[in-house]
């Protein structure tokens, strides 16, 4: 369904929006979608790239990463929080674990300003914090874009 190279951007957004969302926003995050803009940096900031608020939706596909944690390949709708050239922060209904690798699709128009060439990425989970019973805030870094992956496969074959 989401093999989308030829799918138009707005169609992709529609597909993502049709995915069931199981996230339960806790009261503290009720205004989650009200923010937008560039996030301020702090004096002890160690991030390489500026982060931009991205209160929108995305799709996450599980991939089997660890031998002891079975993951079946299926898509989930996620809430994106912020984005930089290096990574993404999002809300999800389940706990994910450090070093797990997954696919993510970010159909929002604003993504183009940060990641002009690709909207489908492979991410690696860095941190996960529980915000509520079905709400986890997850930080992940981009390890490869879909295009990069296609190039890798092409060069290997």
């Amino acid at each position: 369904m989401l093999e989308h190279e030829s799918v138009e951007k707005n169609e992709l957004a529609e597909i993502v929006n049709r995915l069931r969302c199981e996230i339960e926003l806790p009261p503290a995050l009720e205004d989650f979608f009200d923010f937008e803009g560039i996030l301020p940096t702090t004096a002890d900031e160690r991030r390489r790239f500026a982060r931009m608020d991205l209160r929108s939706f995305g799709a996450l596909e599980y991939r089997q990463t660890f031998p002891v944690l079975p993951r079946s390949s299926c898509w989930h709708r996620i809430y994106t929080k912020d984005l930089s050239r290096g990574g993404l922060c999002f809300l999800h209904s389940e706990q994910l674990f450090p070093m797990e690798q997954m696919h993510v699709i970010l159909p929002a128009e604003t993504v183009k300003t940060v990641l002009p060439r690709c909207e489908r990425m492979i991410i690696e989970i860095r941190r996960c914090q529980r915000r509520g019973p079905r709400c986890y805030e997850i930080g992940a870094c981009f390890i490869s874009s879909f295009r990069d992956l296609a190039a890798e496969i092409a060069s290997a074959s």
């Binding site: 660890f66 002891v68 450090p98």
Partner: peptide, 19 residues
Amino acid sequence: PTVGFQELVLRDQYTWAQL
């Protein structure tokens, strides 16, 4: 705890309970 988990999780000799 996170660093320890990362060090062990890709090895196949540890169970999920141990991790």
